[in-house]
């Protein structure tokens, strides 16, 4: 379980996170929803210790993040994390070199799944394919948790579908996923849980099936309700 407890973060005078708390379970897909600029990315960066926080605590399976945690949890940002001059094969070699959790077989499987060639240079990939490679580099790690920042934004519909397929496949099974989005439509049926964030605080945390079952509401209905009140 990933526990975010009362995290605050200021950029200069601007308080981006004002005491954010939520949990994300292993084996579930948790979705951070909020309009752009409410701090979703900052939360993920904070979980991965890629940005200092002003106060609060973050636990991964009960302990704080250390260097070894990067073999257990990985982050897929919305830009590719490999130098542009690398070929996909070079990126694979780099990952294999540094991560014990790198699963070369899975990487190759994913390459095929996404219909990509190992010899392609990262700088020459289309936007959609760049997103797929980025996704692939994270998914091919045998980790317990994935954090994905806006995996669907700014890419073509077919790439979106292919990436969405990942969520229902064995690649994700039994692992914990935190995903951010500002547009729920694509993934409404893929997620377990929603953490609704606005203005640096968590407005609501709920399981989508529970809300449908008990209140007969869609995720959008809940969003509208919360924002309008």
């Amino acid at each position: 379980m990933i526990e975010v407890k009362n995290v605050t973060k200021k950029f200069g005078r601007k308080e981006v996170l004002k005491g954010v708390s939520f949990t994300a379970e292993k084996g579930q897909i948790t979705c951070l929803i909020g309009i752009n600029g409410v701090g979703k990315t900052t939360i993920m960066q904070a979980i991965m210790s890629l940005i200092p926080i002003n106060s609060g605590e973050i636990f991964i399976d009960g302990s704080k993040l250390t260097k070894d945690s990067y073999e257990k949890i990985t982050f897929i940002p919305d830009t590719i994390t490999m130098p542009p001059q690398m070929r996909i094969a070079d990126a694979f070699a780099f990952m294999a070199d540094f991560y014990q959790s790198w699963n070369q077989k899975r990487a190759e499987e994913l390459l095929e799944f996404f219909k990509l060639e190992e010899t392609e240079r990262i700088s020459e990939l289309s936007k959609g394919n760049t997103a797929k490679v980025n996704m692939l580099l994270g998914l091919a790690l045998d980790v317990d948790y994935f954090l994905m920042d806006e995996p669907f934004s700014g890419i073509d519909i077919f790439s979106r579908e292919e990436i969405a397929n990942v969520f229902t496949s064995h690649l994700i099974e039994d692992r914990g996923v935190i995903i951010t989005t500002h547009e729920i439509n694509d993934i409404e049926h893929l997620i377990d849980k929603v953490v609704l964030i606005d203005n640096g605080v968590v407005l609501k945390e709920f399981y989508v099936e529970e809300v449908r079952e008990n209140e007969g509401k869609s995720v959008i209905d809940v969003l509208r309700e919360v924002y309008e009140s």
């Binding site: 084996g27 579930q28 897909i29 969405a164 397929n165 969520f167 229902t168 496949s169 994700i172 099974e173 049926h189 893929l190 997620i191 377990d192 099936e209």
Partner: peptide
């Protein structure tokens, strides 16, 4: 996978 829904569902 076929219905494109969450595996837990």
């Amino acid at each position: 996978h076929r219905l494109k829904i969450n595996p837990n569902t």
